[in-house]
């Protein structure tokens, strides 16, 4: 199953919020939708969910126009919200019914998800009586009640303690294994790196970068080396004096000594020259930018 959004545009009262957004998400994979606040993520998600139509562009599943009765979408909104004064099972069942289930199935599915998330004891409690973290889990359960084919998670990890975060990670991994399309939106880059094979970075209503995360990282110039050593001073000195032809930049970072070569092809030469010096070197690798760096690079003003 493949979800494609093609050339979506949307304006609100003459303000262009989305300018030709195109996305692809494959079932059995998670796709990370990144962007700064106000970049257009929520609008994109809402168009995918059919809350309102885009001004132009289409959304297709396996080449056919999306039929939201056939393909159910589960949505965990960034702004969490359910009925505060209603019993948990009752409102989960209601949300399942709204998604087209009959009430018996919705009830069964609600109970199943409450069990999976370890929330059974709260089945007949009112939402307000729960702690924030537990409300968060209920919200997730409510997202998944309808057994959706497409799961959209907006900042799913915010407010969860490490144990609950682990539980959520397991659930997300299960969803991926179950061949669902998972759309992931978060500002916590480590989670995106952990789950998402593909990413799309939105900035000011445009996709500024999209594709396979590994390939994106690999596409960066591989001429930067990181050297881990207890003798950083000496190595730095050596680079400045003897290797000043190939080393064009030096930087001490928390990761280690960052050495910028003038070209990636000089890597081997650099390695052999350095190893001849017999410094105590713990490790050496080609630097790859983190998703965080990539994100900042593409979305900085």
């Amino acid at each position: 199953m493949k979800l494609i959004a093609n050339n979506l545009t949307k304006s609100f009262a003459e303000k262009e919020v989305l300018q030709s957004i195109s996305l692809e998400a494959q079932s059995g994979q998670a796709m990370g939708l990144l962007g700064r606040n106000g970049a257009g993520k929520t609008t994109t998600i809402r168009i995918i969910m059919g809350v309102f139509p885009g001004d132009s562009g289409q959304i297709t599943i396996d080449g056919e126009k999306i039929n939201r009765d056939k393909f159910k979408i589960g949505y965990l909104p960034e702004e969490r919200g359910l009925y505060p004064k209603k019993e948990i099972l009752e409102q989960m069942t209601y949300l399942g019914v709204l998604k087209g289930m009959n009430s018996k199935d919705a009830r069964k599915s609600s109970i199943k998800w409450l069990e999976r998330l370890g929330m059974t004891e709260y089945t007949n409690k009112k939402l307000t009586t729960l702690s924030k973290g537990n409300q968060q889990k209920i919200q997730l359960a409510a997202t998944l009640v309808s057994n959706p084919d497409i799961v959209i998670l907006d900042e799913p990890f915010s407010g969860l303690d490490p144990v609950n975060a682990m539980l959520l990670k397991d659930v997300v991994k299960e969803l991926i294994v179950e061949d669902k399309i998972v759309l992931f939106s978060s500002h916590q880059m480590n989670y995106i790196e952990e789950f998402c094979d593909n990413i799309a970075i939105l900035n000011k209503g445009k996709i500024v970068l999209s594709g396979n995360l590994k390939e994106i990282k690999r596409s960066y110039d591989r001429s930067k080396m990181v050297v881990l050593s207890t003798q950083q001073d000496k190595i730095e000195e050596f680079c400045k004096t003897s290797l000043n032809k190939m080393v064009v930049g030096l930087d001490r970072t928390a990761d280690g000594l960052m050495i910028q070569l003038d070209s990636a092809s000089k890597k081997n030469e650099f390695l052999s020259l350095l190893s001849q010096q017999n410094y105590d070197i713990d490790g050496m690798y080609v630097y790859e930018p983190s998703l965080n760096d990539i994100f900042v690079e593409y979305t900085e003003d």
Partner: peptide, 11 residues
Amino acid sequence: SRAMELLITSA
């Protein structure tokens, strides 16, 4: 209560 966020995407 933002329950609307879910309702509006469901109905």
